[in-house]
């Protein structure tokens, strides 16, 4: 079953801005799906329409085979959303926010309290349950929005840049939490500017640009399109003169750091053989760019060139 099916979705704002030009998208049940795109590409408009915050101009959307127009109540009950911008009452505390949200989904107070306790604990907010939400740090506010999105235990969780502005440690712990939620059966649709996040978390990905879907595939097959990767090698001994390495494009960033482009056909073995022959020991090796980021940029450039 498709957790989300979008057909020919169009949105033209008052003033004429055509944010979506007829997109089609399908997300399988249980998927962890990334919707990527530059600012203004149409990601938030798409999410806004799915969650009834934006009126669509044309097209259909169904959630677990329920049309969001004709089966609005049932469809909405299956969706949880954590938006990009903070949108809870600054005067209420986290516990009140979760209890109220549960109430809007018809969950009685007793069960709502149980759920609120569960998700506030899981997201490390229980100690802050009675603090006014305006006093929470940015990271806690993000977590609170995820807890609120989960309080009615939706089958489809939509996260619009959930880790924006969150420090690295917290981001990693949120990733673990989301992976766990996904493993328990919740379908997750994620938008993010951190392409490393999409690469690490998501199975499938769609890239949207200027209101069109320009790529829709699995993360694995998308990454396989990457022909050349740029690596940074940290060398054990400084090199006073640059080493001679045949068939590779490379240069020294400094005496101990080598940047090298490696195509899929070349592989790494030949490089290591050549470096060993030159008695150059490698301490560590890393990608210069995130792989998905490289592809993302090249796809957007192609899309601009084709226009």
């Amino acid at each position: 079953m498709k957790a989300l099916k979008i057909s020919n979705l169009k949105k033209t704002y008052r003033g004429g801005l055509q944010a979506l030009k007829g997109i089609d998208l399908e997300v399988d049940e249980g998927d962890f799906f990334a919707l990527l795109g530059p600012n203004g590409a149409g990601k938030s408009t798409t999410i806004g329409i799915i969650t009834s915050l934006v009126n669509k101009t044309e097209g259909t959307i169904s959630v677990f085979d329920l049309d969001i127009d004709s089966h609005s109540v049932e469809a909405k009950s299956l969706i949880g959303v954590a938006p990009q911008e903070v949108n809870f009452s600054q005067f209420e505390n986290p516990l009140e926010i979760l209890l109220n949200q549960a109430g809007y989904y018809g969950i009685n107070r007793k069960l709502a309290y149980h759920r609120a306790e569960k998700y506030l604990c899981e997201l490390g907010l229980w100690e802050k349950r009675n603090d006014p939400s305006r006093t929470l740090s940015g990271g806690f506010k993000r977590r609170l929005m995820i807890a609120r999105a989960l309080v009615h235990e939706p089958k489809l969780l939509i996260l619009d840049e959930p880790t924006a502005g969150v420090d690295v440690e917290l981001r990693r712990s949120m990733w673990d939490f989301l992976i766990d939620i996904n493993k328990q059966g919740t379908t997750i649709v994620l938008t993010t500017h951190y392409l490393e996040e999409a690469e690490n978390l998501c199975k499938n990905v769609a890239i949207i640009d200027k209101g069109n879907i320009i790529e829709n595939t699995s993360v694995k097959s998308l990454l396989s399109k990457l022909d050349i990767e740029t690596f940074i090698l940290d060398l054990k001994e400084p090199q006073t003169t640059p080493p001679i390495i045949s068939n590779y494009v490379y240069h020294m960033l400094d005496q101990s750091t080598l940047q090298i482009d490696i195509s899929k056909q070349q592989g790494l073995n030949n490089l290591f053989k050549q470096l060993s022959a030159l008695n150059i020991e490698i301490l560590s090796m890393r990608n210069k760019y995130n792989r998905l980021e490289e592809l993302f940029i090249s796809l957007l450039e192609d899309n601009s060139t084709n226009k």
Binding site: T51, S52, L53, S72, V73, E74, K76, S77, I79, V81, P83, E85, V86, N87, F88, S89, Q90, I97, N100, Q101, Y104, Y105, G106, R148
Partner: peptide
């Protein structure tokens, strides 16, 4: 404060 969205996304007529 945009928390009206809490109600708009929920299944409330």
């Amino acid at each position: 404060q945009r928390h009206i969205e809490e109600m708009l996304v929920a299944p409330i007529p």
